[in-house]
């Protein structure tokens, strides 16, 4: 599969929005892979954290938009703590989620009925609130 890359894509609206919301310059990233090496959630991700940043550098909007990784990211910030270039990937993941959730007709990425009564009874309130904030359309 060939991918055509253009300037309008690399510096396109989508990429600019991610940069603006996250406040991160993903061109700082030199793809060392340290984030992916230490990420505890990689097993559930389809794209490695470093790959998400790489796709953003190339402006590959569709691939990034539809990745599972942004929903899996727990924002533990291990990647940021170790990043030699100081890129905060959890902020990038958060801005990707926000962009998805702001879309017209955005789907919920959590369904409260999926959780057992027993789990809900012992889940801390704050966890539920941040879960809704993270996974539900605004």
């Amino acid at each position: 599969m060939k991918t055509v890359i253009s300037r309008s894509q690399v510096k396109g609206d989508f990429v600019n929005k991610v940069a603006e919301i996250s406040g991160e310059n993903f061109f700082d990233c030199y793809q060392c892979g340290n984030c992916s090496a230490g990420c505890p959630s990689v097993d559930e991700m389809d794209l490695l954290p470093s790959q998400v940043v790489r796709y953003l550098q190339l402006g590959l909007e569709e691939e990034v938009k539809n990745c599972k990784s942004m929903w899996v990211c727990a924002a533990c910030m291990m990647c940021h703590a170790r990043c030699p270039k100081g890129v905060d990937i959890s902020k990038i993941m958060e801005s990707l989620r926000v962009l998805r959730l702001r879309e017209v007709g955005a789907e919920a990425h959590i369904d409260v009925t999926d959780f057992s009564e027993e789990y809900l009874a012992r889940a801390p309130q704050i966890a539920m609130i941040s879960g809704y904030r993270k996974f539900l359309p605004l």
């Binding site: 060392c32 892979g33 340290n34 984030c35 992916s36 090496a37 230490g38 490695l48 470093s50 291990m78 170790r82 030699p84």
Partner: peptide, 18 residues
Amino acid sequence: GRVAKVIQEDGFLRVFTS
């Protein structure tokens, strides 16, 4: 890939990298 961490575990040095 840059190595994230090295830990001693089960008689080995576990090197986490990508």
